[in-house]
Each structure stands twice: as C-alpha cells, then as structure tokens.
Amino acid sequence: MVLKNNKQSIYINMSLGTIGILLIALAAIGHLAKVNDYNGSLMISLGVILTIVYINYLEKKAGINKILIWVRSGVYMVLFFSLSYFLYF
C-alpha cells in the first residue's frame, strides 16, 4: 500500500513539474515575442532547456520508467508547440 501511494505521489509531482515548466516556457515565448532582445532570448531559451534536462535527470534518479519519461516529454513538446503557436503567433 505504501509503495502504491509513493508511485502515485511521484506521478502527481511529475505532472505538476511538467505543467510548471510548460507555463514557464510559454511565458518565456510570450516575452520573446514582445521583446526583440537577442541576449535575453538566448538566456531564457538556455535556462528552460537546462531546467528540462535537470528534471529528466531527477526523474531517472527517482526510478521512473524510461517509457513514461519519453511519453511525458512527447506530451510536453506537443502541448508546448501547439499552445505557443495558438497563443503567440
């Protein structure tokens, strides 16, 4: 029972982390669409990418299945590209 609750907690935290990164990335894209600053664009993009890489590393250390990580990454990319297209372009 404890193991099942622990897995559910990990999946909930993984979902919340993905939603948080998605919101940060969408806000960054909105900022980049309004401001034409090359250095700021590079720093924001690099920061979001490094944060995503670190979250993937933490999920692997937490013992989450690789297939689930790939599914989450795919869902994140589809949501990010579709929402950024509809919201900002």
Results as ranks from 00 to 15, higher is better:
residue 2 V to I: 09
residue 3 L to D: 12
residue 4 K to N: 08
residue 4 K to G: 05
residue 6 N to A: 10
residue 6 N to F: 14
residue 8 Q to R: 11
residue 8 Q to D: 11
residue 9 S to I: 00
residue 10 I to Y: 10
residue 11 Y to G: 00
residue 11 Y to S: 06
residue 12 I to Y: 06
residue 14 M to T: 14
residue 15 S to G: 12
residue 15 S to P: 03
residue 16 L to M: 11
residue 17 G to P: 06
residue 18 T to C: 13
residue 20 G to V: 10
residue 23 L to M: 08
residue 23 L to E: 02
residue 23 L to Q: 01
residue 24 I to D: 01
residue 24 I to Q: 00
residue 25 A to D: 12
residue 25 A to W: 01
residue 26 L to R: 02
residue 26 L to T: 02
residue 26 L to V: 02
residue 28 A to L: 00
residue 29 I to T: 05
residue 30 G to K: 03
residue 30 G to P: 00
residue 30 G to W: 03
residue 30 G to T: 00
residue 30 G to C: 03
residue 31 H to W: 04
residue 32 L to V: 08
residue 32 L to C: 03
residue 33 A to R: 13
residue 35 V to C: 06
residue 36 N to P: 06
residue 37 D to Q: 09
residue 40 G to I: 11
residue 40 G to W: 10
residue 40 G to N: 08
residue 41 S to N: 08
residue 42 L to Y: 05
residue 43 M to D: 05
residue 44 I to V: 04
residue 44 I to Q: 07
residue 45 S to R: 05
residue 46 L to Q: 01
residue 47 G to F: 00
residue 47 G to R: 01
residue 47 G to H: 00
residue 48 V to M: 02
residue 49 I to E: 09
residue 49 I to L: 11
residue 49 I to M: 08
residue 50 L to F: 03
residue 50 L to S: 05
residue 50 L to Y: 00
residue 50 L to N: 01
residue 51 T to R: 02
residue 51 T to Q: 03
residue 53 V to N: 07
residue 54 Y to S: 04
residue 54 Y to D: 02
residue 55 I to Y: 15
residue 57 Y to I: 14
residue 57 Y to E: 07
residue 58 L to A: 13
residue 59 E to G: 08
residue 60 K to G: 09
residue 60 K to Q: 14
residue 61 K to N: 11
residue 63 G to V: 07
residue 63 G to H: 05
residue 63 G to F: 04
residue 63 G to D: 04
residue 65 N to P: 04
residue 65 N to F: 09
residue 66 K to S: 15
residue 67 I to F: 15
residue 68 L to Q: 13
residue 68 L to P: 03
residue 70 W to G: 15
residue 72 R to H: 07
residue 72 R to K: 14
residue 72 R to Y: 04
residue 72 R to A: 15
residue 72 R to P: 02
residue 73 S to I: 14
residue 74 G to Q: 11
residue 74 G to S: 14
residue 74 G to C: 12
residue 75 V to D: 10
residue 76 Y to G: 06
residue 76 Y to N: 05
residue 76 Y to L: 12
residue 77 M to H: 05
residue 78 V to P: 03
residue 79 L to D: 08
residue 81 F to R: 09
residue 81 F to Y: 13
residue 81 F to E: 14
residue 82 S to M: 14
residue 83 L to E: 05
residue 83 L to K: 03
residue 84 S to T: 04
residue 84 S to P: 02
residue 84 S to G: 11
residue 85 Y to C: 00
residue 87 L to H: 05
residue 88 Y to C: 03
residue 88 Y to D: 04
residue 88 Y to I: 04
residue 88 Y to G: 03
